[in-house]
């Protein structure tokens, strides 16, 4: 493999990693408050549509990103209300989101743009080079000549690490996922934190979806999220419920994705579906190896009832 091949793989890895990373961070914030939200796929789908539509109508990708966040939050409130206030099962409602949101997105798309075959297209967010850093030979153009969304996402990883490890608010937040009753006895607002986690989760997952239609692909297609929500779920487990760990996990999945695209192009004669499988197979393998050892937040997925005897 020559240098340009390597650089194109790195470039693709970063590009592939970002949406998964955003969605995985969404799940990280959710699970740290004890909310196992498997509805990421759906949240990202509705985010992708909202991002596309608002970018298409306003011409601004930033408006699209914000719309994605808003749509994600809105849909996730269904999950939040059912699981936090009504103590319903997390898995059931997460799955409900997964069934509802993508279908809703497709429906809205057809209502808005009709059934025609002409693909609506938007202009993608432009990359901004960071002066100085982007001139570093080889790595510079790869890492520091990206869209602002890439920088923001990586900044969010750093923020997340600092938040959970250094700040008082982060410590209190984590305690809700570990032992909500203990948190409550110390005057921490458990219900409020859980709702907050759902807002953050909806927003980030929605942005992750919107990233796909504002920075990645010029159009919205059905199934555009293509399993990233589930890979993100795996990334949180693989990443041991920490910001840094999630980043590494997502880079690994991004690398698998980049490799499979590379292989698809270069190996003729092998059915391309075979290569497309790689990221998903990697997910299964990784989960099998890393999944069982250390369970995440202790009260993950358990309802919190205030006056339980």
């Amino acid at each position: 493999m020559n240098l340009s091949a390597i650089s194109s793989i790195i470039l693709a890895t970063v590009r592939m990693c970002v949406p998964v990373l955003l969605i995985a961070l969404a799940e990280l914030y959710s699970e740290r408050a004890g909310m196992v939200n498997i509805g990421l796929e759906g949240l990202a789908a509705i985010g992708a549509l909202a991002g596309f539509m608002l970018t298409y109508t306003t011409g601004s990708t930033w408006v699209g990103i914000l719309a994605g966040a808003a749509a994600g939050i809105l849909v996730n409130m269904i999950y939040a209300f059912a699981t936090v206030s009504l103590c319903a099962n997390h898995t059931v409602y997460g799955m409900a989101i997964n069934l509802l949101a993508p279908a809703l997105a497709s429906f809205i798309y057809r209502v808005a743009f009709g059934n025609g075959s002409s693909l609506m297209q938007v202009e993608l967010m432009r990359g901004i080079g960071i002066p100085g850093l982007k001139d570093i030979p080889f790595l510079g153009p790869l890492l520091f000549d990206q869209t602002p969304m890439v920088y923001l996402t990586f900044a969010l990883v750093i923020f997340t690490s600092v938040f959970f490890n250094r700040s008082k608010a982060g410590l209190n937040y984590k305690s809700v996922g570990e032992h909500p009753k203990a948190a409550a006895t110390l005057g921490i607002n458990v219900t409020g934190t859980k709702y907050l986690s759902c807002v953050i989760c909806g927003a980030l997952a929605g942005i992750g979806g919107a990233y796909l239609t504002t920075c990645y692909s010029t159009t919205y297609t059905e199934g555009i999220v293509s399993g990233r929500g589930f890979i993100a779920l795996a990334a949180v487990i693989f990443g041991r419920w920490t910001g840094g760990g999630v980043l590494l996990a997502c880079l690994f999945f991004g690398l698998c994705d980049a490799l499979q695209i590379r292989l698809q192009v270069s190996s003729l004669g092998v059915p391309y579906q075979f290569f497309q499988m790689i990221p998903y197979v990697a997910t299964v393998v990784v989960l099998a190896i890393a999944g069982s050892k250390k369970a995440g937040p202790k009260a993950n997925g358990k309802p919190y009832r205030k006056e339980e005897r």
């Binding site: 410590l171 570990e178 948190a183 110390l186």
Partner: peptide
């Protein structure tokens, strides 16, 4: 006990602290 097992003794004691100011610990 109302203790978070995955945290240290120190973290458990300061959990929910409202007296000290500032964002960081």
């Amino acid at each position: 006990f109302m203790l978070v097992e995955a945290m240290t003794v120190f973290e458990n004691i300061i959990l929910g602290d409202k007296r000290s100011k500032g964002v960081f610990i």
